[in-house]
Nucleic acid binder design. Sequence first.
RNA 1: GCCCGGAUGGCGGAAUUGGUAGACGCGCUGGACUUAAAAUCCAGUAAACAGUAAUGUUUGUGUGGGUUCAAGUCCCACUCCGGGUACCA
Length: 887
Amino acid sequence: MEYNFTELEKKWQEYWEQHKTFKTVDDLSNPKKFYALDMFPYPSGSGLHVGHPEGYTATDIVSRYKRMNGFNVLHPMGWDAFGLPAEQYAIQTGTHPSITTQENCDTFRRQIKSLGLSYDWDREINTTDPGYFKWTQWIFIRLYNTWFDKEQQKGRPVAELPIPADIEKQGKMAVQDFIDEKRLAYYDNAQVWWCKKCQIVCANEEVLNDGSHEKCGTKEVERKNLKQWMLRIPHYAERLLAGLDTLEEWPESVKDMQRNWIGKSKGAEVDFNVEGIDEPLRVYTTRPDTLFGATYMVIAPEHPLLDRIVTNDKREEVDKYVKAASLKSDLDRTELAKEKTGVFTGRYAINPVNGEKIPIWVADYVLIGYGTGAIMAVPAHDTRDFEFAKTFGIKITCILDPEHADAEVRQKVLEGNQCWTDDGAYINSAGSDSLDINGMNKEKGIQTVIDWLEKKGLGTGAVNYKLRDWLFSRQRYWGEPFPVIHWEDGEVTLVPDEDLPVRLPEMEKFQPGANGESPLANAGDWLTLTDANGRKGRRETNTMPQWAGSCWYYLRYIDPLNDKAPFNAQKEKYWMPVDLYIGGAEHAVLHLLYSRFWHKVLFDLGIVSTDEPYRKLYNQGMILAFAYETKAGSKVPSDEVGERDGKYYHKDTGEELQQIVAKMSKTLKNVVNPDDVTVKYGADSLRLYEMFMGPLDATKPWTDTGVKGVYNFLCRVHRFFADPNSIKEGEEDAEMLKTLHQSIKKVTSDIENLKFNTAISQLMILTNLAIKKGRVSPGTARIFAKLLSPFAPHLAEELWEKYGAQKTISYEAWPEVNPAFLQEDSFEYPVSFNGKMRFKIEFPVDASREEIGKAVLAHEKAQKWIEGKQVKKVIVVPNKIVNIVVG
RNA sequence: GCCCGGAUGGCGGAAUUGGUAGACGCGCUGGACUUAAAAUCCAGUAAACAGUAAUGUUUGUGUGGGUUCAAGUCCCACUCCGGGUACCA
């Protein structure tokens, strides 16, 4: 009797499909619910990768386990199907993106179904479906119509926005402008990244550090000014930060990354008077305590006051510098970070704490987009300022004595020859005007100076965030259209809810429009419209970025076919929050931050019932593959590599190669296709192997022999547990009962903790013992089948059927541990001398410490270690260890 | 530079949270079955030394220190690898 996985898996997949085994019923009366969510994939043309099934199998195991524990489980799958590749393909071939998308989704669905994942396919969603993006547009309208009330720290409808009397007085336009400035979504000129190759605007975060576009890899990325939709996510910075503290079941690393991304800093804004100009220059600093060490100021080249600050004799030089800076991207600026550049403006400011005259420079190491776009420079205590001052020979005044640093360093710092950013005691920090922080430490100094500034009206405590407004539009065809109309008189209106969705026009050519316009700019009929009064309007031609659809998809699964609302409120209240969310760490910041932001807005508007969408988050690790390289470090494609005696060599040259671990890639020819694995070993083996490789969150290399190992295990399981000759009535012995119940205990807790690798090893131990015993009782076999079922569901169903069941194992009660079988009456104590284990002696579990100590010392084996020495101490830890200290 | 995470046999990885290091799997070695091979089954497998052998001794969780009766686990310093971020004042 062979383990014919092909037939067996087909049989059960058909059974599940026919019986709708995993259809989720909205039984809102069951208090036990579990929402297990996978990060839905972008259905690319290359099909499923072995990385996909890793997370999917993990949530599937938990889903199956929860069902068997009486939970009402929501476990859905869908497609994040808007995106560039389909559009690029359309530009090249003329094939409509919807056709490509459809085909890719079909491939993905087929592949995913072949893995035996227990999704409720009736809830499948697709972000490109008008029935779906109708509600994405609907949410956009909500964002547009919401403002953030700082006092209440809450988003509220713009209808509730109080309009100041002086604005009201200025008329309707002023009121409109005032409201527009408060909306969470707004339309404005924005300097954006423009990828020449993709002909697309990219968000800041899509441009990598090396200046390349993350999607296409070219470095042809430049700045461009375009009218763009932006979302005011920084308004929610504080809420997004505070929310992180409530997410106890998120990895700390992800929370840290989000905190860093939001980048909150506390400090002060300080006004510096400028000689000969009536307007003060305001700076933001996190170190107001170092004001006494400020020996110059720097303003960004784009600073609005620059023009007035520059003196005539310096104008030419400054203009030249500003122009050069404007041609540089932010990236060039940072790339040249090693060498700081800048020009003296010719004018001086007055340091408010000591009245000193300090020069104002313009330099591009100060960014217009952060803080006030101007800084006070304290070269003695800020590394960037130090470098700049050194380069241009500006005065460096040490005001913080590094008391506890070593003498040499301290001396250099005091002389202004080294920068010191840590704590110390202030020196030279007393002004004529009642401010004296000499001798204080950093923390106290900062507070004292802020208090003084506020009292004097020279500045205030201030908070800044790195988080910027979210550029929310793309010049693309294959994305959600904005429900927006621009009228010829300049008014912007949103399409009313009842007219949603705004569909994409049918088009034949998908080339971008001129000057960075979306292809939609060429969509004749669709583009223009006329209102009842004959006013002409033009639809928004930008589309939403790919993030949009994934910001709220978890909500749509709750009620995917609803055409009256994005979802039913009762159902939302029942299913939310998501109990387990598994996906790649690459989404640690952007997707998860964006979707938390949307969720919080929806929460503030009363549309969803929870403040945070995802209760437990887990990142699966990446699956890598072995690759080979020469001593010189050049990579060799896997098909050119031979193996001999555990060593690797180049088939052609014979050169010995080193095995390394690398990402799967076409060039290295080490890509593993899940379909091939399924054909060769079956879906259960693929699932099992991916879970057995190592901890779920670790990055680990794929090995074919590893798959074979778990395949062999399943063969053994099948050979033994599917054979009626090995399942016979009769008592189990104590060893079997103990292992069985240990297995129930371990598999249960391991699933709860997502430690699938050790759960599987326990199933192997149990199987090995059963085979050794030669027979098990039907009861034991049934428990085994249940324990196996979340991991290898096809085989488990098959066994279950063989054991006489009429229906699926999926809803059978999960086995319970009987602690009686785990209890031992004796424990074999490891006995160590001076911490080294020497031998073992068995004692009853309830033996007293004294008893054990005495017996051990009297034991013949102990004599060898005691002989000629003095017993100094006897440590007995009940049911753990005995340690005897001799000397 | 800064913030996280990691380092355990030939390999992937276990280790009840301070208590027998190396579970389970791969690989390898030997044996059984076979005309033979594959498959399967059984046994062995951290290293070094001693012994015909059972066995014994020593060393051993990236490096160096420390705490402790006892450290893979805790503390300090460092090395290397991976991820994030980077003129954010």
